[in-house]
Design a protein around this nucleic acid. Structure first.
Lengths: 118, 118
DNA sequence: CTGGATCCAACGAGATACTG
DNA sequence: CAGTATCTCGTTGGATCCAG
């Protein structure tokens, strides 16, 4: 794993797949949003209920970004009242798979960081 | 994977291991810093050279946080000139392992997001 | 119901100067 | 060499109002 002494590598977030991935899934709410959608919580209002503390604007922004990154798809139903449903794309599902071990690592190593809500 | 219809789950970043982990490793520079340290780039000034664009303050902050989260250890040598070396802890190494698939996912799925630097 | 647009406050991050 | 302190500014996110 050790690099050659004279090898010069320049690293930058814009070139690192890890940083790019964290940019796509990072942020305070995105992993929870993706997870909830994967669990069938697929409408704006139900997501909002499950995410106490998130603002409408933030939820809308996160959903737009997740959609434009191809993780979620968005289906609009021309009804009254209007209805929109989100679902996980294949790409989103494949990301969820690689993220599960990360989730488990956190569960094993970060208990001390958990805040207990009442 | 589908939850029961009447099950009511409340999600919050403070309770989600994924969000906690992303908080620990997230941010623009942390994954690169951890990776570089794992590759033997273990001093402040060499890290700074490899991370064009990062400010001293940011690098110092990220190193402090990574240290307090137990991912990096910091060894101070009482010399002139002063010398400090960072290294990956076991915990940091175990995180790197679960993050490799994330890295690979990004490499496969996020090429379109890469910016070419000259 | 699902958002977009706007305004504003708070926080994060860069630049610079200084220190053990 | 390896940082810290301060100051400032830009961006982010919350609140509110409006619309399809």
């Amino acid at each position: 794993m050790q690099q050659e002494k004279n090898e010069v590598l320049i690293y930058a977030p814009a070139l690192c797949p890890m940083a790019l991935t964290l940019d796509v899934i990072g942020g305070k709410w995105k992993p929870l949003v993706v997870y909830l959608v994967s669990q069938g919580v697929n409408r704006f209002s139900t997501l909002e209920k499950q995410l106490p503390g998130i603002s409408r604007k933030m939820l809308a922004n996160q959903l737009r970004e997740l959609e434009s990154d191809g993780l979620l798809s968005r289906e609009i139903f021309a009804e009254v009242p209007p209805r929109v449903e989100y679902s996980l794309t294949e790409k989103g599902a494949s990301l969820m798979e690689v993220l599960m071990p990360v989730y488990e690592w956190g569960a094993r190593n970060l208990q001390h960081r958990m805040r207990h809500l009442h």
